[in-house]
Simulated scan of single mutants.
Amino acid sequence: MAAKFFLLALLALSFSRARASDPSQLQDFCVADRTSEVFVNGFACKDPKTAVVEDFYFSGLHMAGNASNKQGSAVTAVNVAHIAGLNTLGISLARVDYARYGQNPPHIHPRASEILTVVEGSLYVGFVTSNPENKLFSKVLNQGDVFVFPQGLIHFQYNCGTKKAIAIAALSSKNPGVITIANVVFASKPSIKDDIIAKAFQVDKKIVDHIQAQF
């Protein structure tokens, strides 16, 4: 009797876990209603009868971003904040412009994997695996080359050519997010205590103070 009850319990648990998984699309689209007061994991859908073609359209990737900054790069993102029709579809796009010797510094996309295509120029790219291996996978890419960055891993791109470079990135989330490592460590608000960062990086606190001042 106990064995039968245990078996039934396992079957019920398995069924409940299957039912609790994320469902597939249940409609043709779910255009984001950014005015909705309903709080969900993402955006609520607006009435599909009110959808218009502009909900699925964006213009601007033909324009170069302004890469005249300290990092020498500019990211033009196209996610659900720019195309409401991307809501629930799990995809987004970005154009990245690199000045000569510019870089897209080490960063993470917490909610997406990325596939990068070089449109112009040459890039040195790479990602690092998680602890304890921390193995670097890196390669020089030229026009037409493609590279994949797995979700949640630190990665970067550096313009190793003598001219500007352009890349197009596709990401597996409508809102992939970005965490730039240097920004979150040295420019958080309020600041992380310098003695904590100094111990983590095994450097003197004066060095940490100097770096924090740059931000």
Rank of each mutant, 00 (worst) to 15 (best):
N79H: 07
K135R: 11
L61V: 06
L86F: 14
A44R: 03
A20S: 15
G126K: 02
E37Y: 00
N79A: 10
V40S: 09
S24C: 09
F127P: 05
T35F: 02
T35I: 01
D22S: 12
A51L: 05
N87Y: 04
N66E: 10
L136K: 05
F29T: 06
A32V: 04
D47Q: 05
A81S: 13
T129F: 01
T117I: 12
F29P: 00
D28W: 00
P132R: 08
P110F: 07
P105C: 07
H62Q: 15
G60H: 07
S92D: 05
G121I: 05
A84C: 03
D97R: 00
K49G: 02
F39Q: 15
V128Q: 08
F137C: 04
H82Q: 15
F29L: 09
F43V: 06
T129R: 02
V118I: 12
V31W: 01
V52G: 12
V52D: 11
C45Y: 02
V118G: 13
F43C: 04
Y98S: 11
N79D: 15
N41F: 04
Q27T: 11
G60M: 07
V118E: 11
F137I: 07
D55T: 06
G90L: 04
A81D: 14
Y57L: 13
N41W: 03
K46P: 02
H109V: 09
D22R: 09
F56Y: 09
F58K: 14
F39A: 15
L89N: 13
V118R: 09
A32L: 07
D55L: 10
E114N: 08
V96K: 01
H109K: 08
F56A: 15
A51P: 02
G126Q: 06
I91P: 04
N131E: 14
S59N: 11
E37M: 07
N131Q: 10
R19K: 08
R111I: 04
V40Y: 03
Y57A: 12
Q71T: 13
A77D: 01
Y124K: 11
Y98E: 10
Q25N: 13
N79K: 08
F39M: 14
A64N: 11
A81L: 12
S73G: 06
Y101T: 14
R19T: 06
L136I: 12
N104A: 12
T50A: 13
N79R: 11
V31H: 01
A99Y: 00
A99Q: 10
R34I: 11
L89W: 03
T76K: 09
V40W: 03
K135A: 13
P105A: 09
N134H: 12
L61E: 02
I83R: 01
T117F: 05
K135S: 11
E114Q: 13
C45I: 07
P132V: 10
P110Q: 10
R95H: 05
K46V: 01
P48F: 04
G121L: 08
V125W: 01
A18E: 14
S59G: 10
R34C: 03
P110H: 06
H82Y: 02
A18H: 10
I83K: 01
F56N: 14
Q103K: 10
A94T: 01
A74S: 15
H82C: 03
V119D: 07
L136Y: 04
F43S: 03
V38P: 00
V40K: 08
R34T: 14
T35S: 15
V52N: 12
T50E: 15
L86R: 03
